[in-house]
Structures are given as structure tokens and as C-alpha cells.
Simulated assay, not measured.
Amino acid sequence: MENPVLIFGAGSLGVTALDIFQRNSVVVYGLLDDNKELHGKEFGDITVLGETDDDGFLKLIGQKCEAFVAVGDTRVRKRLVKMLNDRRHIQPVNAIHDKAIVSTLAAIGHGNLISANTLINAFATIGQHCILQSGVVIEAQASLGDFVHVGTGSLINSGVTVEEGAFIGTGVTIVAGVTIGKGARIGAGSVVIENVGAGTTVFGNPAQKV
């Protein structure tokens, strides 16, 4: 990526994205965050410049500057992505850690955060604007929809389908072939052995509806 990038979000995900881009020798122009208490704060030599809808910074995005959305709250992430699509006619770029392993046979959309030691195997499909935290394993032919969040150290086995907006906590194991429905939530440390319906929250080993 030749252009500098502007990161939306200055919380823990924003700092993670900053580290990923800098490790990949991508220039980070700055961070934007709606929390005014963070404005002017510096992370190394990179500053939180202002709010996420500041036109002065937004107008930089496009020809000469890329954008990345690093916000954990899915509703806010969706709103920021839509704003960038509508107002700047761009898709956020991917932030892929140099210590992640991504098969050349995997398919990956736009705007994904892929953290250190994550492994994405052959013919896995990752949608748009997903967050894969450190040490996640996505096995062959597994499929993640858009805006999926997978917590640190989780294992998504082969042939699993995770639908849009699902949240998978830290250290979760999903056995082969299971489908996780749209907007479902899987509690940390759970072992999922059967399909989880849309909007359902499950927890435990084996995972049960909460």
C-alpha cells in the first residue's frame, strides 16, 4: 500500500491497527476518535487529530489517503464504513499483521483487521470489516460474513459458516461444519458443537443457550 492511512478509532483496536501498519511500513497520517478526551493524545509520534466526521480530515481520503476503521462496536463500525462509502466513495483497506499467515488460496474482503499469529487456511473466505484478534485459526473452507468479530485464540474449524455480525469471544472452539447465525454471540471459552441460531447467545462446553 503506497498511500498513507487515517485510522478511525483510537482505542485498543486503533492502537493495534497503528502497530500493524507501522510494521508493514505504511505511513499513518493520524487517528480520529469521537472521544474528545483522546484528542491531542499521542501514540509514539502519531496524534489523535479530531472527530471521525471532521470534514477537514475526511476530504483527504480518496486519491492520496486510505482509511481504516478500528472500532469494536459493530454498530459504530457499520456507520463509519457507510459514511466512507457514501461521502468519500472508498472502501477501508485491510490491516494484516506481518506475523499473520494467510493462504494464497483464501479470499479476503476489505477493511479487515487480522492480528499477529492468525492463520487463515486454504479456501477460507473472510468477508468485509471483520476483526480477527491474535492467534485466531480459520481452517480450510470456513466462511466468515461481514462485520464478524473473532476473539483471541479462537479456532474456527473447517467448513464452519459464521454469518454477518456474529461475535465470537476469546478462546472459542467451533467444530467442523457448524453454522453460527447472524448476530449470534458466543461466550469466551465455549465449545460449539451444533448450529447457533441468529441473534442467539450461547456459552459453555458444550455451548448452551443463555
Rank of each mutant, 00 (worst) to 15 (best):
L58K: 09
N195K: 13
H89E: 14
P206L: 04
V172S: 11
K64W: 11
I120P: 14
I108N: 08
E164S: 03
T152D: 02
Q63Y: 07
S158M: 05
G177V: 04
F167N: 04
L80G: 01
S115H: 00
L49H: 09
D45H: 11
A106D: 07
T152H: 14
R88I: 01
Q91N: 15
T200S: 10
T173D: 13
K82H: 12
D45R: 10
K78W: 02
A188I: 11
A10D: 03
D98N: 13
L113C: 04
E37L: 10
R88V: 01
E139N: 12
V210G: 00
D54Y: 12
G197N: 10
I96G: 04
V5L: 04
K182E: 15
F21T: 00
R88S: 02
L31A: 00
A142N: 08
A10H: 05
I114P: 11
I156T: 02
I186T: 05
I46K: 10
D53F: 12
N24K: 13
I7E: 03
A67I: 02
I193C: 06
I7L: 04
K41G: 00
G189T: 06
G127A: 03
S134Y: 04
L38K: 15
G199Y: 05
F123M: 06
T52R: 10
A106F: 12
I193W: 10
G135S: 06
V210E: 01
L155I: 12
E51W: 00
I126S: 06
P4W: 02
N157R: 08
D33S: 05
Y29H: 12
G153K: 03
I46T: 14
D19Y: 10
V192L: 11
T104E: 14
G14C: 05
Y29S: 09
V162A: 04
S190T: 01
G177F: 12
E163N: 08
E66Y: 15
G127R: 03
N121Y: 07
C130Y: 10
I90N: 01
G40F: 09
D86M: 00
T16F: 08
G159K: 11
K82C: 02
I193R: 13
L60M: 13
S143T: 10
I193G: 04
F57S: 00
A10V: 01
G159S: 09
V210Q: 08
P206H: 02
V178F: 11
E163W: 01
F147C: 03
G50Y: 09
S115W: 01
M83C: 02
